[in-house]
């Protein structure tokens, strides 16, 4: 699928650098080599995930693509869930999930269609954006949801969690929440002054 084959090479090179060092050679690694490898690793996205659907049906996939972008839309800081390939991530994970989780997902999506048909005589995909949001407004706030919608609430809680997992664990997500760790960083020396000030703590006491 990939249009990022160039980046793929650098990633492979980095993996090779990190992976092919003989046991005794590790002692001769320089901080530079590590920093370079780390940067390369973080520059590129995953091995191109297999986009051939294994779990969702075509109809489910269409539903999921609309739903994840309602949950995490594009905004001024980052792209949408579909742009971060969340549906592909979900399909990959669910294909190997437990029977229980698989049934939960199939059944939850079916529940959503049923609810839309009851209200609007059309399934989720064929409903209008306003209609879809009416349903989501009713199931996405557990504390104030009507008891008869408890199955929808349960499904949406799990679906929202999985959407967030997929989005924020992507490269786009790491940048979005400004996560800057998991790197070779030999000069780490505690928190920077502005972070300390914000919490009202210091190293002096």
């Amino acid at each position: 699928m990939s249009d990022d084959s160039n980046k793929g090479i650098s990633r492979r090179a980095a993996l090779k650098l990190l992976g092919a060092v003989p046991l005794t050679g590790a002692l001769h690694w320089t901080p530079d080599a590590f920093s370079r490898a780390t940067q390369m690793l973080q520059q590129d996205d995953a091995e191109a995930p297999d986009t051939k659907r294994k779990f969702f049906s075509a109809h489910e996939d269409a539903t999921v693509r609309i739903l994840v972008d309602l949950i995490i839309p594009r905004d001024d800081r980052s792209g949408s869930a579909t742009e971060a390939r969340v549906p592909e991530f979900m399909d990959y994970m669910l294909a190997e999930a437990s029977e229980r989780n698989r049934v939960e997902m199939h059944g939850g999506l079916a529940w959503l269609d049923t609810e839309c048909r009851k209200r609007f005589s059309s399934d989720f995909v064929k409903s209008t954006d306003t209609q879809r949001k009416q349903v989501l407004d009713d199931i996405s706030w557990p504390a104030r949801a009507r008891p008869e919608l408890s199955h929808g609430v349960q499904f949406f809680n799990s679906f929202r969690d999985l959407t967030a997992s997929g989005f924020f664990s992507s490269q786009m997500g790491w940048k979005d929440v400004r996560y800057i760790g998991n790197v070779f960083n030999p000069n780490w020396n505690g928190c920077p002054p502005e972070a300390l000030r914000q919490l009202g703590v210091s190293y002096d006491s």
Partner: peptide, 23 residues
């Protein structure tokens, strides 16, 4: 590092939940 399972149960945080830009 944000990974699988990232911030599960967001609806438990004060005022959090729903969907869209605010989420």
């Amino acid at each position: 590092p944000p990974s699988y399972g990232f911030m599960g149960g967001i609806q438990r945080y004060p005022g959090a939940g729903g969907y869209g830009k605010s989420l």
